[in-house]
Design a protein around this nucleic acid. Structure first.
Lengths: 333, 333
DNA sequence: TTGTAAGCGTTATCAA
DNA sequence: TTGATAACGCTTACAA
């Protein structure tokens, strides 16, 4: 038993009104353009049949869908939820829909998801990773639609980019720790994606520059609060003289901080902890978490604005936008 | 300067190979169906042109997109990330794509997002709310595609449903608290969506049944860890004799629990705290949070399985599936 | 104010 | 094994 799709078409409406579908089409886009009497009749039938707009024909004839595709690494990360909020505020105002997919930090998965979005004829793409497979690059070139790489600042952007200098942000954060006389700072890392690696570079640069030895405790597992606890314990075993933790995100930082409290390790006196992203959770732990604040909604807004400018045919002169970061004033440092 | 879309078509490939697009179309779907020599030539040209599949024509002629739409309330909630993981495991295995949108707990926004998904001809829908606008119901009826309402168990399902009995789960949780001799239990609620209200009902039933007085501290704000702290303080001011908190989710519960520690309120001795969803964060606080465990991935898998069965034309006899909950064994109770 | 015709890119169907 | 034709539902351009 196959589904039979009896979704009403403009023709169905036209038949009942006794007009052609062209008139109905006009009504749909601009009710003023048909005679008042016709208008009422059409409106009634639309209501009766529960007509749902069908964008597919327009996609076919104009190769455009009035939709923007977004590829996120993860759905469970507040960081990207904020990004999407920023994007949507702008796209909605310009009549664009968004289609969200997630690729779980895998270049291969990203390739598949992008192919899928392109096959739906999205008009533009916002990507959250800067490393792509050759085929992805090839597809994007062929598709010839505007693309914004976001969150990071890629060395060789595909098209446009809006993001943070994570390497510099990490450098600044670690520098601040060193200024507070911390010398045995360890970097906690998880899920070794690009941004984690950039932060590691910044960490290493700050340490080396200060004549200190960089030391990392890393795992390929996904970040989580409980992983923060695990990594803390690993650090204490491996580097008992550790006096500071720079964590690649707040999940690890909070996990570590809470574990310290349970083990009666004084924060920040014995051990300083600095996180990354400045999520809400950091404001309810004690002491409050010091963290790198990343303006994600702003990044989203800027990305969407750029994309829409490109879609409107504007010439974009500044293709790469760096967004500044700050460090929050918590008590964990 | 308008974009010119020069995306290659089957015709372009056919021209270079010296065949018709029909042959190329056959190759795309099943390379075995064309002669080996042709096969190689086509493959080479596809590579050269960077051909990207275009599903739009198929959507037009078959009114089907091989895609399933998912409407989430929020992107920042781990609960829904897990749900999507479950869904995707099943859909992927059956060659369906997923398109994700979010509607922020608003019926009006849900209506718009569903209209949008339907205009892309999704073959099925998974919804995470059970209250819908009349126009939403009308659209879904007209679209005549399978729909699964998930997370909750709606009283009058649109089509199919997979979810938890939140009222009963809350009842059970509060019952457990009462069994531990807690009598002044307060319910903490935020963002008064349907599930929050169902849990409140369960809470009230358990309290009333035990001859106790239900007392709620609620706000319409979004849940967050910091809101948990705020609501705790409000509760202590309003009900100083309070000896237990049943929280509508783990964010509030953890926020309250951490605030208790700062204020030297002993948990669970002075104040018991029970959360909802059993997220990872509850396992790193001390004491570990007691919470209602909700098998979200399983709900996702079941939902997707049902949907795909319906799409395959199978007759679904059991349209509503209740998924059991458990209560975790934390130390906060 | 309304109608006619053609076309978007693919696939189902029938034909060679 | 390959090709020709029509069809999907809408909009643009032109006509009445």
């Amino acid at each position: 038993m196959t589904e039979k799709r009896n979704r009403a078409t403009l023709q169905d409406i036209a038949d009942r009104v006794g007009m052609t579908k062209m008139t109905v089409s006009r009504y749909m886009r601009n009710p003023e353009s048909v005679a008042p009497a016709t208008r009422d009749k059409i409106a009634a039938v639309i209501e009766e049949l529960g007509y749902i707009q069908n964008r597919v024909p327009a996609m076919l004839s104009k190769s455009s869908s009035k939709a923007i595709g977004i590829v996120l690494p993860s759905l469970s990360n507040q960081v990207f939820a904020h990004l999407v909020q920023g994007i949507e505020r702008v796209t909605k105002a310009h009549g664009y829909d968004i289609l969200i997919t997630h690729a779980g930090y895998s270049e291969q998965a990203e390739e598949e998801k992008i192919a899928s979005l392109l096959s739906y004829q999205v008009d533009g793409l916002i990507l959250t990773e800067t490393n792509h497979t050759p085929r992805t690059l090839q597809m994007l070139k062929t598709a010839a639609i505007p693309v914004v790489e976001t969150m990071e600042l890629p060395e060789t952007p595909i098209d446009m980019a809006v993001g943070l200098d994570h390497e510099q942000a990490a450098y600044d954060a670690v520098q601040t720790m060193i200024n507070k006389d911390k010398t045995q700072i360890v970097y906690l890392a998880a899920r070794l994606d690009t941004r984690t690696q950039l932060r590691q570079k910044g960490y290493e640069r700050a340490m080396t520059q200060a004549g200190l030895t960089p030391r990392c405790v890393a795992t390929e597992e996904h970040s989580s609060f409980s992983l923060g606890e695990t990594l803390l314990n690993q650090t204490l075993a491996q580097y008992p003289d550790c006096d500071g933790l720079f964590c690649t995100n707040d999940d690890l930082a909070v996990g570590a901080l809470l574990a310290c409290k349970q083990q009666d390790i004084e924060v920040p006196k014995t051990l300083s902890i600095v996180g990354y992203n400045a999520l809400d959770i950091g404001t309810v732990v004690s002491p409050r978490l010091t963290s790198v604040a990343t303006p994600r909604e702003l990044i989203g807004e800027r990305s969407a604005t750029l994309l829409i400018q490109a879609l409107s045919g504007e010439t974009i002169t500044e293709k790469v936008h760096a967004i500044p970061h700050t460090i929050t004033d918590g008590g964990s440092l």
